[in-house]
Amino acid sequence: MNLTLHVWRQRSADEPGRMERYLAEDIEPEMSFLEMLDVVNEGLIAQGLEPIAFDHDCREGICGTCSQVINGEAHGPLANSTVCQLHMRQFRDGDEIYIEPWRARAFPVLKDLVVDRSALDRLIQANGYVSVSTGGVPDAHAVPIPKINAETAMDAAECIGCGACVAACPNSSAMLFVAAKVGHLASLPQGRVEAAHRVCAMTEAMQREGFGGCGNHYECEAACPKGISVKFIAQLNREYLKALPGKILGK
């Protein structure tokens, strides 16, 4: 199949970028989207041109590195999928495809389709973890956890930190990312200890990093390659309400 691509090209963080047009020829339907870009890039290199820079690592949908907005949808048209797991059979011969980076103030473009997502790392550093004093490994059954809580925690822990929720949100909010972490840890006894501090610290960090606020539009859930539910944002709001009295009393 032959396709027309419109790709965001930007040489560096401080230069303005623009959309450029490329032809992708002789593409096989069983290629992944990234393999299609590899083919285009080989062509560009052969012509002595700068290849299109894009992020990728595992190419099996688990690392959360690939990050492209394809035809206006974060990770493209296939639901519950990353770009690397999107295949060209989802497109038709002659299609025009628009490829853009994640767009958010908190995710500055470094080059072409590559953005700096270290803001998400700093959200995790704002107590998006459980502080454990390491000692001997405890017995697996030492802390009983109800099955339902374990399931909830696992659903939230599916987050691969790709940032599609931010890219899809009309407000560039990272609320689903933060909520997944808060929900994951608050559902487990080990995480409860710091639950109140965590929800305050992470949401404050979100504001500091320049992410927008949640408008309850739920675009994040639709874009999430792991299908993480916005019910975790409701849980985050409950956790915040629980933490609020302590926060006001200055604890």
């Binding site: 958010a104 407000n171 927008g212």
Partner: peptide, 16 residues
Amino acid sequence: NRRARPMAYYRNKPQR
């Protein structure tokens, strides 16, 4: 919230 996205997408297809 507008400031959080300084540059709009060329193509934007809202889902939900």
